[in-house]
Design a binder for these strands. Structure first.
Lengths: 347, 347
DNA sequence: CTTGAAATTTGGAACGATCTAAATTACCAG
DNA sequence: CTGGTAATTTAGATCGTTCCAAATTTCAAG
């Protein structure tokens, strides 16, 4: 059962040539005679030879391995991201170490270190919450290309691919304004993250642009989860001058907000406008269907992988920052459907 | 920027010892003097040395890499599976190549070949539809441990971890019978897969056990997707002696079935009982909430990884077949809530 | 036949670790 | 001191590949 593994030398011997020739055949060199190439190829198949890439890399020190570390694979947004990367990495003839950091910076550091020991040529990282630039500095300084995706790490000079949170938030707010809302809140998310900051600024800028109130009390931060959404909406409902609509940090918060509204006998999408962010898979099927800002995670993954491969192949490179565009998907939770119905009646 | 990489020899030189000693330190051997160990450790940190595991493996030919290939990472069931594996693989000090085959056997073959060239110690595979035993034979024969998960490949003597589809389907059917249904259908899934066969037999056995009709016309196969569910339920509604409830091949089919029922003005969970399979994440939040057979994919992933590691560590091993137990999660779509309400009124 | 250039093939030194067996050093009792 | 054992350290071969420089073969023209 356990084959004593066969090497180039075995192949060479069986084919009656030298190991150098076999090596040449393996790399498809044009130096080798067509007859010998065929002969060696036949022997390779016959003996069931498998190429040992680590041995090869040892000599030429350029591996075909990239690392992919994602903060939460169970979140379908990040799973899609990973699948996008997988597609381009695979079709470029590379293979990936892939690991889930589960939002734990220590675990993240461990797997990155391990990948480095195994000789990865580059890393795509969707960083765990709390990742600092110091965590990544040694890796970056060693000259290994790194691409951050979905989230940024402040103070680190590396490439990144992030979605346009500012534009997305602004578009969502403009849509709510167009629907007639004049007092709009921003719900959920930890206010010490870069993503929060960007979306919140988009929110605020759109309000200011329309000459509406954009004061601090309209921004209610909380955990970026369903539970956080419930908590945030409770705070909102206790406000004196109560808003009539809200943009949420992400879809999970938006779902929580809907839960919270319902338990206060306020129907989301009818009595109150709710917009989410990310367009997770459940957004379409939820009741009411969630109006949300959609960010094609698979496309982002592909772009990140392309960027990384480009940097790996060009010995020297400059960090690049890509911004993935974003689009508002209007469904029911914002109340657009309601308004159309109303207009139909009036007409 | 680009460090000329430092090796054991550099460390040895800087620490004033031989490379053998450095190697001993690296493997934490007790042979080396405490003073030298400290000295070498300091130099290692100072020079920013990174261990080159491929070089090491070349000599000792036992890598700390496992391969994980999954048929569809965008499906949250399989994503959870992968996360479970990730957990145990990572904490065992291994690292994984992970790839998505996207249900494409050719792509699957490619990535497995690539992983093999890179020297993986074992493989966990959730096989793409259409995988044959011939596809995996060479790998298995080479003595590399392989664990199949979620799906089996007929005619291949390797370890596997699958859920108990028979018991799950039977439990679901018994529950429907208990709710008063006497004519029950099985919807969706391709009837040439092992998983289909197992679930369908569980369905049939439970019907026979209760002395009910279990004829072929009650089994309506289709694509295992939402669209497939719609198609299957349409065929069901055109039947002469129409069933009053259905067990679906998986949750996607169940959602489709609900869609189809609604467009025929039949309310799932009220006029018709629907049960799914897998307990995907949306099952809980859908309307009506889906009654379904839950299979803890993360736990399955963990068990698969544990099994693989066990086989890697014991030089020789026998294939083992693990069956993950399964439990029925009763929500709304089966009509149980309705019945309870009715009973409350009657009481 | 030679001959020289082109086409092939090849030996052996890397690559960065481990491992064996042997060398060196330390230490202690006599 | 000396011998002997225990504790450390080390030289050098080795793992499976690539690559350089050199060797060999092929072959058409003189």
């Amino acid at each position: 059962m356990k084959q004593p593994k066969v090497t180039v030398v075995d192949v060479a011997h069986a084919a009656g040539v030298s190991k150098s020739t076999v090596s040449l055949v393996l790399q498809g060199s044009s130096l080798v005679n067509e007859t010998t190439r065929a002969k060696v190829g036949a022997v390779i198949r016959e003996l069931g030879y498998v190429y040992n890439r680590s041995a090869a890399n040892l000599r030429q020190s350029k591996s075909k391995i990239v690392g992919i570390v994602v903060n939460d694979l169970t979140n379908s947004f990040f799973a899609e991201l990973a699948v996008g990367m997988d597609m381009v990495v695979q079709s470029a003839g590379y293979i990936q170490f892939m690991a889930n950091s589960a939002e734990n910076p220590d675990r993240q550091a461990e797997v990155i270190a391990s990948m480095r020991e195994h000789g990865m040529a580059g890393l795509i990282l969707s960083p765990a919450r709390g990742t600092t630039s110091a965590d990544l500095r040694p890796l970056v300084d060693s000259g290994i290309p790194v691409v951050l995706v979905a989230r940024n790490v402040p103070g680190l000079k590396v490439s990144s691919v992030v979605s346009d949170g500012h534009a997305g938030a602004a578009a969502a707010v403009r849509h709510l304004i167009e629907l007639g809302h004049r007092r709009i809140a921003f719900l959920g998310g930890f206010n010490d993250t870069a993503v929060f900051d960007e979306r919140m600024r988009g929110f605020r800028d759109a309000l200011v642009e329309a000459g509406l109130d954009a004061s601090d009390e309209l921004v209610i931060s909380s955990a970026p989860s369903r539970a956080g959404g419930v908590a945030a909406v409770e705070r909102l409902l206790s406000m004196a001058d109560r808003p009539t609509a809200a943009l949420c940090f992400n879809d999970a918060v938006a779902f929580g907000a809907c839960d919270g509204l319902r338990s206060a006998r306020i129907e989301p999408g009818v009595d109150f406008g709710v917009i989410g962010f990310d367009d997770v898979i459940e957004a379409k099927t939820a009741v009411p269907a969630l109006t949300t800002v959609s960010v094609d995670p698979q496309g982002m993954g592909r772009r990140a992988a392309q960027l990384l491969l480009k940097q790996i192949n060009s010995g020297d490179f400059e960090p690049e920052a890509l911004v993935a565009s974003v689009r508002l998907v209007v469904r029911e939770s914002c109340g657009a459907a309601q308004r159309m119905k109303r207009e139909a009646v009036t007409a």
